[in-house]
Amino acid sequence: MKPATPPGPPTAVSRVSEAAAETAISAACRALFLPTIRTQAAPLAAAAARERLTHQGYLAEVLTAECDDREARRRIRRVKEAKFPRAKTLDEFDTTAIPDLPPATLAQLATGAWIEAGQPLVLLGDSGTGKTHLLIGLGTAAAEQGRRVRYVSTAALVNELAEAADAKQLS
């Protein structure tokens, strides 16, 4: 028995008008869930023609645009899924609020290496010192790096655990 081989490239191409090509590209992109290619195919084709790119060069540009856009949407989706109470980033964090936190330590925390190592992070301090801002900023950075993040207050977590204990099932 011969192993199955994937189908090869089409051996013949057909001539289609520009309008038919645009319609076919739009339909195929909808079917394949490629929204960026659907919107950027024509402008990138015009730019590729001006720059005299090869067909492979044009294809590389279109696929790179799709990949970049998907990654940007993925980052946004992960931050939304974390359910932070407000948007905060580490760039906005006032480092003078916590003088005992060296900038190098903050930069190290922002990389998320402590998450990969399974190390806990405990933020202790008086009210108004920026603990929540720092927590949300680190969570946002982690989500943008591709990690799944969930923000939950202590009270909400206790309630969720109590309900899970009553139902004998943790969500």
Rank of each mutant, 00 (worst) to 15 (best):
A72V: 10
R73A: 11
R75T: 09
R75W: 00
R77H: 15
V79M: 06
K80V: 12
E81N: 07
E81P: 07
E81D: 15
A82G: 01
P85E: 05
P85G: 00
R86Q: 10
R86C: 06
R86T: 10
A87Y: 14
A87P: 04
A87N: 06
K88I: 08
K88Q: 05
K88G: 03
T89Y: 03
L90Y: 02
D94G: 01
T95V: 14
T96G: 00
T96P: 01
T96N: 02
T96Q: 06
I98H: 00
I98K: 00
I98N: 01
P99F: 13
P99Y: 09
P99G: 02
P99C: 04
D100R: 10
L101K: 00
P102V: 01
P103I: 01
A104S: 12
A104M: 07
T105I: 12
T105M: 05
T105W: 06
T105F: 12
A110L: 08
A110P: 06
A110T: 02
A110E: 15
A113G: 02
W114P: 03
W114L: 01
W114V: 11
W114D: 10
I115N: 04
I115W: 14
A117T: 14
A117F: 13
Q119R: 14
Q119T: 15
P120R: 08
V122T: 13
L124N: 02
L124D: 08
D126A: 14
S127R: 13
S127N: 03
G128L: 14
G128F: 15
T129M: 05
T129K: 00
G130E: 08
G130M: 09
K131Q: 09
T132E: 07
H133E: 06
